[in-house]
Design a binder for these strands. Structure first.
Length: 420
RNA sequence: CGGGCUGUAGUGUAAUGGCUAGCACGAGUCCUUUGGGAGGAUUUAGUCCGGGUUCGAGUCCCGGCAGCCCGACCA
């Protein structure tokens, strides 16, 4: 991508009024734009990061048999009345009317429509187990949207639903999903751990939240540093400072971000919506369900909260918008500038021909310092500088974001250097 | 929903109730520049909305709207 053509500009100043790290950097670097409190646009740079995260999730969920589909965000009241959640979900649900005064809602979650689909498409135990998922916008009228991407009125979630003939099958899938979640967060550069949590108004069965340690977190987690036991403070209560119930170690309280959570729904939704199957003995039974969510937008915000320095963001390679930031530094001498441009253009073309993702700062109307500052802000993992100085030795300067070490590589070797 | 703070060009800011709302960045044009946010010339663009007080309101008062923070809330 030629930076001169990139839609979305970096800002020299932080947005005023914005305190959270993720909002400050993402907005300033032109990754996202705030349309309203808790409602954001993703600009090309931010959307590339978003899609990287999306693809990691897609790969991992596909690997545990999830089939991707897409559900409507706009839903009729009747469906939600069957589960009691038209009223029961409370004020966080966006409710609206169509032209004929018919009630609709914007999906805050999707158990209802997915169970309705299961009712139509699952008849026998031979159809089970089954897992489907989607990546979609959710709408929740948060009383207080805040902290950039961390809590929005519209946000993007991967929601996976599994359907089973018996509890054992659900338990097995649940365990599998837990491992997959840890893996997904790992691939995004985040260390996470599962904590026991309450099922909320959703279900009485137990659930797990996936926490990432961060001062930006809204949750408090009680955890044992010895054995790794952890529990949400909500249900752990006043356990802090007492010995760990598992190993007797000392418990600590940590601020954490809830990056995902999973629930055993049981038959609550299938019974309400009539999603039954016939088992091997010919008996009609409600389908047993699980659901598994990851907030993608929040995940993106969390990564920024954790990986940054005073100059800007530091993206993990796996979800960086580009792998290489190629920077061309022009020269006062027009002839020299031309040579630098030719060499840089050529290198850029060779890199993208090899499928390497490059953002090329080809702007000829801004100074070296400005380019470096932008590069630090945007936070692409590798910076390659081509200037008069480096061209004289037929090389480029290579620097990793977050490190101060400079490396010099011959221009002809650069492509090979990055070819995987 | 309670409490606090704040709304001035695209961005960040300045202006005892008083002259034509100033500055920087950005953007446009021209010239000079090019290894850490460069310089000059020139142009562009603003007081959230509605009332009120006043000879006069960006500034004071009332109402609204919006944003941020704390709390409550949060499958």
């Amino acid at each position: 991508m030629l930076q001169s053509k990139l839609f979305g500009k970096t800002q020299r100043e932080y947005p005023k009024d914005e305190v959270s790290t993720n909002a400050r950097f993402l907005i300033r670097a032109g990754f996202i734009d705030k349309l309203s409190a808790g409602v954001y646009s993703y600009l090309p740079l931010g959307y590339r990061v978003f899609r990287k995260i999306e693809n990691i999730i897609r790969e991992e969920i596909n690997a545990i048999g999830g089939q991707e589909l897409f559900l409507p965000a706009l839903m009729p009241r009747e469906l939600w009345e069957k589960t009691g959640r038209w009223e029961g979900f409370g004020p966080a649900m966006f409710r609206l009317k169509d032209h004929s005064e018919k009630d609709f809602l914007l999906g805050p979650t999707h158990e209802e429509p997915i169970t309705e689909l299961a009712r139509k498409n699952i008849q026998t135990y031979k159809d089970l187990p089954m897992a489907v998922y989607q990546i979609q916008n959710k709408f929740r009228d948060e009383p207080r949207a805040k902290a950039g991407l961390m809590r929005g009125k519209e946000f993007i979630m991967k929601d996976l639903y599994s359907f089973h003939a018996d509890e054992q099958s659900l338990d097995m899938y649940y365990e599998e999903a837990m491992k997959t979640y840890i893996k997904i967060f790992n691939r995004c550069g985040l260390k996470s751990f599962a904590v026991e949590a309450s099922g909320g108004s959703f279900t009485n069965k137990y659930s797990h939240e996936f926490m990432v340690k961060s001062p930006a977190g809204e949750d408090l987690t009680i955890l044992c540093e010895l054995c790794g036991w952890a529990q949400n403070k909500e249900i752990a209560g006043a356990l802090a400072k007492k010995p760990c119930p598992k190993c007797g170690g000392i418990l600590k309280e940590e601020k954490t971000v809830e990056a995902g959570n999973i629930f055993k729904l049981g038959t609550k939704f299938s019974e309400a919506l009539g999603a039954y199957f016939t088992d091997a003995l010919g008996q009609r039974k409600p389908i047993i369900m699980g659901c598994y969510g990851i907030g993608l937008s929040r995940l993106m915000g969390t990564v920024v909260e954790i990986f940054h320095d005073e100059k800007g963001m530091i993206w993990p390679e796996s979800i960086a918008p580009y792998q290489i930031h190629l920077i061309r530094i022009d020269h006062a001498d027009e002839k020299k500038s031309k040579k630098i441009k030719i060499a840089a253009d050529k290198l850029y073309n060779e890199l993208i021909k090899k499928g390497i993702e490059v953002l090329y700062d080809d702007r000829n109307d801004c100074s070296a310092g400005e380019k470096f500052a932008d590069s630090d802000l945007i936070g692409i993992p590798v910076r390659i500088v081509l200037s008069d100085k480096t061209l004289a030795k037929k090389e480029v300067e290579l620097k990793r974001r977050g490190s101060n070490d400079l490396q010099f590589v011959k221009i002809k070797d650069v492509v090979r250097f990055f070819k995987k």
